[in-house]
Design a binder for these strands. Sequence first.
DNA 1: CGGCAGGATTAGATCGTTCAAGTTGCTGGA
DNA 2: TCCAGCAACTTGAACGATCTAATCCTGCCG
Lengths: 329, 329
Amino acid sequence: MAEKVTIATVARHAQVSRQTVSNVLNAPHIVREETRRRVQEAIAALGYRANQAARQMRTGRSRLIAVRIEPTRDGINGSVLDRFLHGLTETADAAGYRVLLYTARGDDHEIATYDDLLGAYDLDAFVLTGTKHGDPRTAWLAEREVPFVTFGRPWDAPEAHPWVDVDGAAGTAQATRRLLDTGHRRIAFLGWPAGSGVGDDRRTGWRTTLAAAGLDGAAPDRATEDGIAEGEREMRHLLARDEPPTAVVCASDSLALGALQAVRDAATPVAVIGFDDTPVAAAVGLTSLSQPLAVAAARCVELLTGLLDGHPTDPHVLLDPTLVLRHTA
Amino acid sequence: MAEKVTIATVARHAQVSRQTVSNVLNAPHIVREETRRRVQEAIAALGYRANQAARQMRTGRSRLIAVRIEPTRDGINGSVLDRFLHGLTETADAAGYRVLLYTARGDDHEIATYDDLLGAYDLDAFVLTGTKHGDPRTAWLAEREVPFVTFGRPWDAPEAHPWVDVDGAAGTAQATRRLLDTGHRRIAFLGWPAGSGVGDDRRTGWRTTLAAAGLDGAAPDRATEDGIAEGEREMRHLLARDEPPTAVVCASDSLALGALQAVRDAATPVAVIGFDDTPVAAAVGLTSLSQPLAVAAARCVELLTGLLDGHPTDPHVLLDPTLVLRHTA
DNA sequence: CGGCAGGATTAGATCGTTCAAGTTGCTGGA
DNA sequence: TCCAGCAACTTGAACGATCTAATCCTGCCG
């Protein structure tokens, strides 16, 4: 077993004091060029790594970011979080931060977990995925001035805190335009009940695009809970109309998959576009809107490191999804 | 801003020394009952939390476990990792450990990351998902006596290190028996090319079960890379035989999904069973073998905490998957 | 040639915890 | 009576970094 290499070992090896080694690491500009080089050589030669715990004790900063990992809500959308996490870990890594996971059952438990993580581990920042109306978690964090970012806008107060989000309306608008461009005129929307910020946003993009094309009059629009069975049922409703739609934009891949099953029996082909570009969509050839999760994750990290290192950037980032064309539209 | 509560604050409040407070936390049995109660009340009243960094500096243990998060290999199986991670985080939490994520491109980079994590963060243990033939990573860790567990057996040396795995053979055996029980006699297997431990294992369960039923003679068996298109293609090959199979056991949900597409056009109905019980399987009603990921994760944590706290358990855990019956079999 | 500014470097204290080595007070056996 | 032995608790040092304040040069100005 090799001896433990501390800052003192490096200092001795490079014939300088501990503090100079520390300066080479944290404030290189105040160290003379030649000394710096000598220290850096010693660091490389000895394979020295600054002990994070000791550093943290002195500075009060852990270079750790916490992210909640949820219990894979509906499954089909679960892999969204998966990809987001990967992007987050990678970008954080590059910025010198590491990602710590936590779980929580309920808001109270989650807040207790914040308290614990902050108290015991001196966590630097939190990333929350999804917020809801009057979220107690963001209030708690804001009150204590703990840096955090949410992936997902706070719909009731868009300026409340830093966030990164994907522009759902821009996505469905893009999908709708694509359908208009390929000749469709009766374009339906299959979404969630009004009241969810994300769902309403996605519906808006479809509606405004149709309106801009002068087609909003009788645009068929249905709302249901998320799910494949639900999607199929509602799509059958749409197909049973006098003038059934020739295309449908869906608020999720689950709904789109259901719709796809319904249109299989239809007399004329019906175009279907989903949302989230889940692996399932890729698997069955469903055209879908892909969220730039890696970019979103990177922006979250940028926002946080900006806050932590004192050079804040624009705290509200809205990203456009991209339409991935496959067989169904 | 409240004053920072340290062990000294608690000690003063409870009229004891720092060390006694420390003992209440780490070795309660050596503290007199009444003193212990007084200290615990002080801890609760002040909301004291032991500073992990300071503790770590003294003990050299961080109560942190690292897990690699992969770049969502093929997508359709991505959510397996997702669920595993969630289980891991939850069990680790209960055992007083936290989960740190890391990514790596290539084995060399991964080993460099180990070095960094161990050097800078004093990581207590690693969880690796999947190992391959002559894995340099496990060798590196073993050489340095770093505690680790793999989720997935080391196929070439089953005793080499602690692992937790799901018994693929038992799974496909169960699936095959189910098909035999429901009257099927021509049961095919659709799997991966020989050489992958997991794939061979899954094939074995099917073969031995057929053999035990005296049906192994002309059991049709095909091998291909994983993927929906590949599954569909190979299934069409099987269906084109003189005596086409009436059922097929697949090594993955991707292959099963492909098979499902192929049998849709078949003259007579063909039963299909997949493996992994991915969200897609649930979505399309595919019967599939479900891996007990939460249990597997829990066992990984148990193994590690056992190693770390000095009461090791049986280091090789093999879990049975369960057959989730849906429409397709 | 003395003094002084200021850049480069160093020594000592400190963060919050646990370890090692005491100290105290009590019991009981010779 | 005395002290060994033990349980319960306390004190000082140490972990490895950074912060603060002091020291050492070196060059330049008056």
